[in-house]
Design a protein around this nucleic acid. Sequence first.
DNA 1: TCTCGAAATGGGAACGTTCCCATGACGAAT
DNA 2: ATTCGTCATGGGAACGTTCCCATTTCGAGA
Lengths: 341, 341
Amino acid sequence: MTAASRPATILEVAHLAGVSKTSVSRYYSGERERLSATMQERISAAAEQVGYHPNPLARSLKGGPSGLVGMLVADIRNPFSVAIMHGLEQACRQAGLSLMVCNSDNDPDQERQQLAMMSSWRIEGLVVNAAGCHSDALRQFVTSGTPVVLLDRSLADVQVDEVGLDNTAAIDMAIDHLVAQGYSRLLYITEPPAQASSRQARLARFESRCAGQGLDATILCTELHDQQALDQRLRALAPVVSHARPAILCANGQVTLAVAHRMRALDLRSGEIGLIGIDELDWCGLTEPGITTLAQPTDAIGQAAIDCLRTRQHDRSADRQYRAFAPQLIQRGSTQPPASH
Amino acid sequence: MTAASRPATILEVAHLAGVSKTSVSRYYSGERERLSATMQERISAAAEQVGYHPNPLARSLKGGPSGLVGMLVADIRNPFSVAIMHGLEQACRQAGLSLMVCNSDNDPDQERQQLAMMSSWRIEGLVVNAAGCHSDALRQFVTSGTPVVLLDRSLADVQVDEVGLDNTAAIDMAIDHLVAQGYSRLLYITEPPAQASSRQARLARFESRCAGQGLDATILCTELHDQQALDQRLRALAPVVSHARPAILCANGQVTLAVAHRMRALDLRSGEIGLIGIDELDWCGLTEPGITTLAQPTDAIGQAAIDCLRTRQHDRSADRQYRAFAPQLIQRGSTQPPASH
DNA sequence: TCTCGAAATGGGAACGTTCCCATGACGAAT
DNA sequence: ATTCGTCATGGGAACGTTCCCATTTCGAGA
């Protein structure tokens, strides 16, 4: 392989191998079987000699596969998003695809723009983990033949595959665990579920489950920067002697972080007040008794998303898929009540 | 603007406006001034009507600007990398560019592959935050006219711009702070600095500074998963009555995390043992007395990297730039020694 | 009035592919 | 021997741009 100043083209390879560009193209477009053995050898040798790699630009301009998968993410600084991104990236690599990540910073306008951009780059598939997503933009992808997968979201009015946490199972596991540990006064804290269907699903399950089981449950639905709201409810939760033990269930990692911060500020002891959060985070083992979490299998989720894309690529009219993954309980001190006396 | 099933082409706009495609091309390639006022209006109107956006694929195939900036990152799960990524992304957006992020997962082979991929997508600039980077691959970018910026790394044998933390200032700030707080027996913990120049720079500065000042300083250079090495040194550090107060300086966020974990496991109290880390992390305010950190201005660093790229784009032979940013001290309990008696 | 240069505009090739449609060869069936 | 289908291969157009090189127009200077 010679290091050329300009990348080699298919024509150079064809010339060197003494074959037509069409044959070289076939060699690289998964039609090798159609070529005779000698031809394959000649092409392979020539390509190696000049260090040829097909130009994805030209390829996808012509309408061929771009080898590009897009990911639209609402908040790139959310550790969950990063974890998923990592999973996607791995899965893409394994499938010979490249991931193009677009962060919308929670701005619907940007979302639109990013979608347009990805579309103009002719991505072969799109993974969406964002809120304000105007459905018609997504539908445009679908009708143009680009598979779309919704990640940790669901949209009633657009028919696409969905992958994410099994929210019902997660909430059930959390509640079961809390109850088993002796907590019976539950506070569920979530960000406003407006656009985010998974927040809605978790919240709904929490409500119905607690109602069904007759648990003493309350809900706090707040923006995380609203420290007052948080503080007020946390204070109100402080345990009363000879009263049911209180516990907090955090709807996601961001909530867990905010709650941990305020509990520390208010000098509330977790354990005494139970604390469990959905999403595992680097530092959950670090705070004093450690925070119990439900870890999402993010790599598996990413892999599943790519699987969905590829399946649908090969069969555009495949059945709509919903893939929900169960979380894993990581038990730490925050759900270990102090020995009663 | 009509929603067309297939995106509009320059030809359709030209036709509709009754002008040549060349003129439309000029309109979109920053040569508007060369067009008469009437022509500009006609094109603008026609483009709006059919919802035209130039196709970046075709554009960059022909050799025009792709509007794509590549980022090669060694570990996408490192919060520092994510923070930088966010900064880059913002800066790109502002400049009308798109960011293509490639994660190499610390695998040199993948690095090569990712670089090749980005090159084949004709990125206009490359930001590198990775270790095993074979210099010749980078040089190839440079010679082909693609500006490269090294982020938090430096390479002796390839002439490119570099942006990152002012390592000297950071180490000095950390040491000064520790000394001012009454710590004088210092342990510097870092991952092996082999390929990473910033690790080398920090380590070197720590050594020379401590030597110059006659401080009782030791160094632990270890892989973070080597729990034994860590534990041993941490135990050895335990404070001795009527002896100089010990403190730990963590070379980066990953180290801080690992050290915090082991300190907790060994029941070592930070504060008593001083603890300061380079890189601010979400949870540093959460652990018991809080961990003092030096926060890097990641958004500014990202912005600076893009600035470098653009400068060099316009003047390929501009002077090589080194831009180093000072960190900000965020003081918490871990560098607050308990009141002495 | 003629010439000339600048300014405004357009035509066509090229970028590196893919894919449709030949073309020739060859063995099998008539 | 002739016809046919199949297989291996090649030529050329097309994808949507940009850019080089005309061509046309027009006002100014001779």
